[in-house]
Computed example of a mutant assay.
Amino acid sequence: MKRWSIFASTTAVIALLAGGCSSLDEHQREWIFQPSDRSWGNTADQTAGMEQVWIDFRSSLTGEPARLHGLWLGNKPESADTPVLLYLHGARYNVNGSAPRIRRMHELGFSVLAIDYRGFGKSTKGLPSEDTAREDARAAWTWLAARHPQQRRYIFGHSLGGAIGIDLAASVKDESGVIVEGTFTSISDVVSSFKWGWLPFEPFITQPFDALAKVKDIGAPLLVVHGALDNLIRPELGRKLYDAATDPKMFVLVKGGSHHSTNTVGGTEYRAAVEQLFSVKAPDPAAPQQQATPGATPPRAAAMRPYDAGRQI
Rank of each mutant, 00 (worst) to 15 (best):
N263T: 14
H259Q: 11
A170Q: 06
A244Q: 08
S188W: 01
S39V: 09
D247K: 00
L253A: 08
G20Y: 02
P208Y: 03
Y93G: 06
S39R: 05
G162D: 14
S123D: 13
V225Q: 03
A15Q: 11
N75W: 07
W4M: 10
T11Q: 14
G227L: 09
Q28W: 06
F33N: 14
H106V: 15
R134Y: 02
P294E: 14
V180N: 09
A220G: 07
I233C: 04
G177F: 01
A211I: 15
G20M: 06
Q276C: 06
E30V: 08
S60K: 09
N94W: 04
H226E: 15
Q34V: 13
G157L: 08
Q289E: 07
N263M: 12
G109R: 01
G197V: 11
D247G: 01
I32H: 03
P298E: 10
L232Y: 00
K214M: 12
L232W: 01
S23Y: 04
R271L: 05
Y242K: 02
T62K: 01
R153T: 08
A133Y: 03
A8L: 12
P306F: 01
G219T: 12
G177K: 01
S171Q: 10
S5Q: 12
A18S: 11
R305I: 13
G161Q: 09
L160T: 12
A309Y: 00
L68P: 15
L253Y: 00
A287V: 07
V265F: 01
I313A: 01
T246L: 10
V95G: 05
R104N: 09
G177R: 02
E78K: 05
K281G: 01
N96M: 08
F110M: 09
L16V: 11
W54Y: 11
V53R: 03
V280R: 01
Q34I: 13
A309Q: 07
S9I: 15
F110Q: 07
K255C: 03
T297F: 00
D167N: 13
R103E: 15
Q276A: 10
G90L: 08
M304K: 10
A99I: 14
A273T: 08
E135V: 05
H27Y: 10
A18E: 14
V224W: 02
Y117K: 12
D167T: 12
P83F: 00
T82A: 03
G49L: 12
A282Q: 05
K125P: 11
S60T: 14
L232M: 10
Y242D: 04
G90T: 10
G121T: 13
Q28C: 12
L199N: 01
S79D: 15
K216R: 07
